[in-house]
């Protein structure tokens, strides 16, 4: 019993990092994804081409490898030593994790947003133009709200994947929940910590599903 309590305590301390990676990644990757989507649809062929390469690399290589590159890249490529640097209360290894996750997820979100934006009928833009809306007003008032409704199911998928992907931060020795579980399992010689961690992930995704279902329902008033 004492062992279980201590397991829970330690996993909970790892959970802080897991949640930190999760929320910070969403915070940065969603707006960045929107920007990347716009870049991908840019009339400027060079911009569109570069963004296309960016998306293809991000989706075509392992996230774990990208994390390692963000962490070690500055030193091995540019000779800049960041590894010992702390950014505010955060160690660089944590910052590198957030950067790596955000860049990676932005690419996935960008493709989802692009699909949503391109599925909008051109008549919506034309009506908005005739009514005098500026380009920015048209996008934020008319297009984006409808795009959000269209892409929400795909976004939910990504968010659920992100919960599980946070465990990849272990490659940078961030002591998120999975790392903790692994350490505990080997010190206790028991699978119990893995099972408890699994329950944590599962519950988190359960909460996400409930929230996203509500969000979808709240937009069901129109079609």
């Amino acid at each position: 019993m004492a062992e279980l309590t201590s397991t829970l305590n330690q996993l909970a301390s790892g959970l802080r990092f897991t949640l930190g990676i999760f929320f910070l990644t969403l915070l940065f990757s969603i707006p960045l994804g929107l920007l990347v989507a716009r870049g991908r649809m840019s009339k400027n062929k060079i911009v569109a081409g570069l963004v296309r390469v960016y998306i293809s690399v991000m989706r075509g290589t392992p996230l774990m490898l990208q994390l390692l590159l963000v962490y070690f890249g500055p030193y091995y490529i540019f000779g800049v030593k960041l590894a010992d640097l702390d950014v505010g209360p955060f160690k660089y290894r944590f910052v590198a994790t957030i950067i790596g996750f955000s860049l990676n997820y932005a690419a996935y979100f960008a493709e989802i947003f692009r699909g949503g934006i391109q599925s909008m009928p051109v008549g919506q833009y034309e009506a908005a133009q005739i009514l005098g809306f500026s380009k920015a007003q048209t996008f934020f008032r008319i297009i984006l709200p409808q795009v959000i409704k269209r892409v929400l199911p795909s976004v939910t998928n990504e968010v659920i994947t992100l919960v599980k992907d946070t465990s990849l931060a272990q490659v940078l020795a961030v002591t998120e929940m999975f790392t903790m579980a692994k350490n505990l399992a080997s010190s206790q010689v028991s699978v119990m910590p893995f099972i408890v961690a699994g329950v944590f992930y599962y519950v988190m995704n359960g909460v996400i599903e409930i929230i996203m279902n509500r969000a979808e329902k709240s937009m069901r008033y129109y079609s």
Partner: peptide
């Protein structure tokens, strides 16, 4: 084909440009 804004009520379809443009 009308091109109304489906996410706006009838009222908002009519008033949105009046207010924001």
């Amino acid at each position: 084909n009308f091109n109304l804004f489906p996410h706006f009520s009838v009222r908002r379809n009519i008033t949105e440009s009046l207010i924001h443009v």
